[in-house]
Computed example of a mutant assay.
Amino acid sequence: MTGKTHIMGGITASLAVAHAANENPLIMVGAGIVGALLPDICHSGSRIGRRFPILSRIINLLFGHRTFTHSLLFLVIVSFLIDRFFPNDILKYGLLTGMVSHYILDMATRSGIKLFFPLDLTVRFPLTIRTGSKVENLIFSILALLSFYFGYEALGWYRFW
């Protein structure tokens, strides 16, 4: 998936969680966007990889693409680090929600992900799509519509005062 689809997936998923949990949707969305981009730190051409090129190259050299940073192990480590250094549940849930949305979207591609890293098992859906295809654009559009719905619901239910 492209970066824009991952961002939209993170927005949609975090708004849905914010609505369901009656949490601050603004914090959830911000963290959801970061979480949606974080797993691609292993790819130097990604949005986050271009922001942190040295870290991106090191992670790619050690693990490759769509392995460690696309795994449940990475999800657990990030959760632990957030609890340790930034103990804020809304921030943590938003970030993890964005990461999970990234994983789900990448499981819809032919390459899949190594969800159970270090096991060499590729996880992907039975029907897959090509990155940047018309089907991905359709998925992006559906996610955008869903984000409007969940955004309206989350903002309608959450009290900012």
Results as ranks from 00 to 15, higher is better:
residue 159 R to D: 08
residue 102 H to K: 13
residue 20 A to K: 04
residue 64 G to Y: 15
residue 134 K to D: 02
residue 30 G to Q: 01
residue 123 V to L: 14
residue 25 P to I: 03
residue 149 Y to I: 15
residue 123 V to R: 06
residue 15 L to N: 01
residue 54 I to C: 01
residue 125 F to W: 08
residue 45 G to V: 00
residue 52 F to T: 09
residue 125 F to C: 01
residue 23 E to C: 00
residue 69 T to R: 07
residue 67 T to V: 11
residue 154 A to S: 10
residue 31 A to P: 07
residue 159 R to T: 07
residue 88 N to Y: 06
residue 17 V to L: 12
residue 130 R to C: 04
residue 150 F to G: 01
residue 39 P to Y: 03
residue 76 V to M: 13
residue 149 Y to P: 01
residue 130 R to A: 13
residue 110 R to P: 06
residue 49 G to W: 06
residue 74 F to D: 04
residue 130 R to N: 12
residue 29 V to Y: 01
residue 129 I to Y: 08
residue 9 G to D: 02
residue 5 T to P: 07
residue 79 S to I: 02
residue 100 V to E: 03
residue 67 T to S: 14
residue 109 T to D: 11
residue 123 V to N: 07
residue 41 I to T: 03
residue 113 I to Q: 08
residue 75 L to I: 13
residue 146 L to T: 07
residue 40 D to Q: 04
residue 66 R to D: 12
residue 144 A to E: 01
residue 89 D to L: 13
residue 32 G to F: 04
residue 30 G to D: 01
residue 57 R to D: 11
residue 143 L to E: 09
residue 57 R to H: 14
residue 127 L to H: 12
residue 70 H to A: 11
residue 153 E to K: 14
residue 141 S to C: 07
residue 102 H to W: 09
residue 144 A to S: 13
residue 66 R to F: 10
residue 115 L to V: 07
residue 142 I to P: 02
residue 116 F to W: 11
residue 147 S to H: 03
residue 124 R to C: 07
residue 11 I to D: 00
residue 115 L to A: 10
residue 100 V to S: 02
residue 116 F to V: 11
residue 157 W to R: 13
residue 64 G to D: 09
residue 118 P to N: 04
residue 106 D to L: 13
residue 85 F to R: 09
residue 82 I to C: 08
residue 126 P to Q: 04
